[in-house]
Amino acid sequence: MSFFATVGQFSAFAGLSVSHVFRGPFFPKNFSKQIVSIGYYSLPVVGLTTFFTGMVLALQSYTGFTRFNAESAIASVVALSITRELAPVLAGLMVAGRVGASIAAEIGTMRVTEQIDALRTLSVNPFKYLVVPRLIAGTLTLPILVLIGDLIGIMGGYIVSVHVLGFSAGSYLSQSWDVLQPIDVISGLAKAAVFGFIVTIMGCYHGFNSGRGAQGVGAATTNAVVTSSILILVFNYILTQVFFS
């Protein structure tokens, strides 16, 4: 299919999905299940990525800034890069790999085995039953994941700064606290919400339009991860421009 036809088809899908967000009936059980599988089970991977990223940032900025005023620079570099850019982007990419893939595979399998058709013959709208709970869960839980990632990332920087480089614990914390403005954290959380939406809508879209057979589902899964990862990076740039220029 041509690029423009695909964009058109996707826009129609996204528009229809969003319109169902505001019209019941809702499926609270599906929603809570998705909160757990998208949010809770992503905690370890998001925690680990931001933790090591915070640590490596502290180490790099020490070698980079050592001639200047390393002690205060490390805390600022870690706090700002983590909250503004790295926690949302890394969490988004990790969730794209973990959640986007599993959504596309699950919905794609349901498409291929006619379970989506079966929903419709039982008078249940598949957008309301499958898409809406995932969209809302993704959009709401990713900011929470990123907020936790912010804290863990800053803690990673703290551990390197205090226990590896031997700087003072108190000044690291006060420096972090002083340099951070509300907009730094809020912009990161807003990005996270957008990324959560991107990952879940891409997973649902590719699953819904999965080709036939195991091969179709495999392709849908790959496409969901690749397109949502690229869109996350594109929208990250756009949102940074919106917030900080």
């Binding site: 349901m110 085995t113 006619e114 379970q115 058709d117 079966a118 013959t121």
Partner: peptide, 10 residues
């Protein structure tokens, strides 16, 4: 009511 070829059970 519909019985699908592959069952299509959830």
């Amino acid at each position: 009511g519909m019985l699908f070829q592959g069952g299509a059970l959830f």
